[in-house]
């Protein structure tokens, strides 16, 4: 039962990702990407990481992708954007990314053969995630938070400069 659900969700994830890559219409591609993220959330859940699954939905599917859609709406691409995207998706441009993706797939296969990717099969509780983050991985968390803080200050600075300039006018 669980295994078949896992493969079903994987199938959805892979197909949605392929569709997200090949759609010329940016909005449609984004919807497929959202579906793909949701499918990955289901995968996380089935692999015993409910906390990661919930965060995947709340943060990736719920917040970051909203910003993507927001940007698409702001750009207002329309027909010409679709046509240009179609042009980019044609033929030769697939070679290098395809090669690199194939390499990654090969690597993944090798890793799986050596049994590196087995899960414990035990559900990881939110508490365990917290302990792991602020225990052994505290340095990574701190570095990430510094990075985010820098981004925040940068964004504030850019926005502020714009506002000041507009007031001066």
């Amino acid at each position: 039962m669980m295994e078949s659900l896992f493969y079903l969700a994987s199938l959805v994830a892979v197909m949605a990702t392929v569709a997200a890559l090949t759609r010329a219409n940016a909005a449609h591609a984004l919807i497929y990407l959202i579906v793909s993220l949701l499918a990955v959330a289901v995968l996380f859940f089935l692999m015993g990481a409910p906390f990661a699954a919930a965060l995947e939905i709340v943060i990736y599917a719920g917040a970051i992708m909203v910003l993507f859609v927001f940007v698409i709406m702001m750009l207002n691409l329309g027909e010409s954007g679709t046509a240009r995207e179609q042009e980019w998706l044609a033929g030769r441009n697939w070679i290098v990314p395809g090669f690199m993706a194939g390499l990654l797939l090969l690597e993944l296969m090798l890793a799986l053969r050596h049994g590196a990717g087995t899960t414990s099969g035990v559900a990881v509780s939110p508490k365990a995630v917290g302990l792991a983050l602020f225990g052994p991985y505290v340095l990574a968390v701190e570095i990430a938070s510094m990075l985010l803080l820098a981004a925040l200050v940068g964004a504030y600075h850019l926005g502020r400069r714009f506002i000041v300039r507009r007031e001066q006018r």
Partner: peptide, 14 residues
């Protein structure tokens, strides 16, 4: 579920 609250937040954000 142990993540009930997060599930709710996820659904409202969807």
């Amino acid at each position: 579920v142990n993540i009930g609250l997060l599930f709710f937040l996820g659904m409202t954000s969807l």
